[in-house]
Design a protein around this nucleic acid. Structure first.
Lengths: 183, 183, 183, 183
DNA sequence: AATGAATGAGATTTCATTCAT
DNA sequence: GATGAATGAAATCTCATTCAT
């Protein structure tokens, strides 16, 4: 039959990863086909061969990122066997660089900003929020899950701008209080 | 006769407000000199006459916005005479559209995203954080102020993406718990 | 078993008809391989497999069209048994939508325009003219045939741009006068 | 006041003339910004500065051409003082290279073809037809004017494709017959 | 002091064509 | 014989910025 077969099977993925790199380093506002192609080491023409314009590349790149982060988030919380461990996992999520290293943080900001101007990315942001809350709801009542999620989202932002590690004791105490108040 | 007088004294401000409009509507990534000039009803050339390029316009526009929001934030909290009233003000800040209407929310996302790629705007974001915490510290100990600030920042984001009003009782209960735990 | 047999015997023709559709709808200037392939529902690669580039497809498509129209023209005039009937056939050719419906008119304009820049299509246009005159010369002297052919060519163009039917009485009177004057 | 003043006042016109040159030489289907800019000896960017895309350049170029040709047509017929002279002017229009030299003929074909796919150019073609008829109506009744116009339009097309001069006697005889029949 | 005409650089996108299979 | 993935070249278009006035 001899259908021609792609000679570079995961080029699509390479392009999306390159796009995330460029977005993280320069921002969506400075992200161009050229820079993505260069970073991915693919010819310029292949970007529009695989994708339907820059907006599509960006949207799919964010999808890829949020899938990955969501899995991380979930697994981090899911590994907890007891509520005690879950509580600790939440504190880790808030304080730790592992869950949300600098690059991911930057990408998240970019995603939230872009979501305001792109319906697919808006949907993505909503899904992301729902999924992270659902992870937490395996261990906590819904109301508690909501508040913890706000902390997990908001606190690392402060960490980012302050440029220094959070006060772990304060975080732990707050998480404890939220859990207690919600019960 | 006909001593030269600026014929449009607050043109600078008009340009910055127009820039904020464009950013809110289209995003930084689609903000251009031309669109700003058109929106401000100002000749194109005046943008580069008054400002040092697009990045400068954007940075100063964000400065203007954050000054305004900061004043609002401060006055809202400052009006409180008692801790009781301050607590209520914080709940209002989190739940209320007044403090952070849709447009401002969008702008804030854009600012945070842009901050990652612009030193002046990064500084601005840091200042913003410090100033809002200081407002809160008139009424609460530093640790409590920190946590409340995380809530004020993070919760409206959730509100934004969920697209419906927050559960005021839950917010109030959480604020109370945070204050109690920090005391 | 499974002796190789062309699985789509009139693909060539389908491609040419699709090309004519695209030319009629969008103009030669907007005719591309992709649009033709899509319209013909054939794989993109088959266009360059069967033809020697876009210019070749266009030239052959025009050939196909002019063959068809020429046959129509000829048969219309050839059916006439008497000069009287031939005269009537000419009036029909000029006034009637049957001979030159909107689509064919458009294609003819495109062909004439393209002929100026393509030797094969120029040849085609010349042949077309000769053949139509020859049809008329079965009934009329050469000079009369020439003039009638001018009318058959030129009048429908006016009809096209005016957007309304011609005045049949005027056409008939003119044809009569031309025949009389040439005799 | 010191408004900046254009330093190349008839650049617009130069661009349109260059566009006509390119269209005449290569056809609309091979007309590009680049080729026009090169021919007009202006920077590429000025094309989109002055015009709203290629379609706009083409449409305005055709407008320019038809204005010029229309003036020629009109003046040719208008100079005639008597019907006798008008009759002779019509024969000249049909036979003579002056009125419709090769280049203009080519452009006219291109315009007619393009008109099918561009509303502004379609309007232009209609206007052209009306105006030429009106010129003739200064000397002949409407019906005669219509038919003469068909001849003026259609006959040079045949001349063009046959590649040799028309038989002036035949043209004159036909024009005479048309005038007589319409009277 | 102020402007808007002008442009070069580069962004996005389209597309004819090639060629491994 | 046939295909469609792939790409280089070029097309259209946008835009920050410059600068004569």
């Amino acid at each position: 039959m001899s259908r021609r077969v792609p000679n570079d099977p995961d080029r699509r993925e390479r392009i999306l990863d390159a796009a995330l790199d460029v977005i993280a380093e320069r921002g969506v506002h400075a992200t161009t086909h050229r820079r993505i192609a260069e970073r991915a080491e693919v010819p310029l023409g292949s970007l529009t061969y695989y994708f339907d314009g820059l907006h599509d590349i960006i949207a799919q790149a964010f999808t890829r990122m949020s899938d990955r982060m969501s899995a991380l988030y979930r697994s981090s919380v899911a590994l907890a066997a007891t509520r005690k461990e879950a509580e600790r996992a939440v504190v880790d999520l808030i304080c730790g660089e592992e869950y949300m290293p600098e690059r991911e943080m930057t990408l998240l900001f970019e995603m939230y900003a872009y979501a305001e101007h792109s319906e697919p990315v808006a949907r993505l942001s909503r899904d992301w929020m729902v999924r992270s809350r659902e992870s937490l709801m395996a261990h906590f009542p819904e109301d508690v899950a909501r508040v913890l999620d706000v902390l997990v989202e908001g606190w690392p932002m402060h960490r980012r701008f302050e440029g220094r590690p959070l006060d772990r004791a304060l975080v732990a105490r707050t998480v404890r209080a939220v859990i207690a108040s919600g019960g």
